[in-house]
Design a protein around this nucleic acid. Structure first.
Length: 185
DNA sequence: CACCTGATTGCCT
DNA sequence: GGCAATCAGGTGA
């Protein structure tokens, strides 16, 4: 599931579910937007310059959660892929609320645009730095594989918010066949 | 040890 | 559409 080329894994994650159960409130989203990040071969990746205190989790085994703080304010979650010591990860950028939508809206303090960004997704699901390094197989944040291919088109584009390697088309978005967005962006 | 920047968000015009 | 907020980690001296 999480083995192989990081871009392939990223495509495969679209349509999978991500669940948490914090504060006794189960929440689940269907992943519909991701970005792939590599290691020494990807200047835009946190792992480009080797292991540091922050990115240690990226060097762990596939299926490890890598959570970091962005802009000193937000949390962003990645799922580590590939082999140990060969860092690569998939940034979770957006999802569709399917369980606990009310809880997520409450955590976000608004009804719309609840899960349509990496920081928003973490806030809605309650993911924080405490979950960094845990496993998506048996940790507090669970990944449930898609049982069947998502009935949607996968759109590819450049990654967002980076300044290096901006042309690498490693952003993947699940869209309805008519081209419209699946979440509330 | 000081400076700089960001895998973002949300509010303002 | 534009820009301020905000701070820890990374980088270089």
């Amino acid at each position: 599931m999480l083995d192989g080329d990081v871009a392939d894994v990223a495509r495969r994650l679209l349509g999978c579910r991500l669940s948490t159960d914090f504060d006794g409130a189960p929440t689940t989203v269907v992943i519909d937007e991701v970005e792939a990040y590599g290691g020494a071969d990807d200047p835009a990746s946190h792992a480009y310059r080797g292991p540091t205190k922050r990115n240690t989790s990226m060097f762990a085994a596939a299926g490890t959660l890598y959570v970091y703080r962005s802009y000193g304010v937000h949390w962003c979650a990645n799922i580590v892929t590939g082999l140990e010591d060969e860092p690569s990860a998939v940034l979770l950028r957006g999802g569709i609320a399917v369980v606990g939508a009310d809880v997520m809206q409450e955590r976000r303090g608004r009804r719309d645009h609840v899960t349509d960004g990496p920081g928003k997704l973490c806030a809605a699901l309650g993911i924080t730095g405490q979950d960094d390094g845990t496993s998506v197989a048996d940790g507090p944040v669970r990944l449930i594989p898609a049982e069947k291919p998502p009935g949607a088109v996968i759109v590819t584009g450049p990654r967002i918010g980076i300044s290096r390697e901006v042309d690498r088309p490693w952003r993947f978005i699940a869209r309805s066949s008519d081209g419209s967005s699946l979440n509330d962006i």
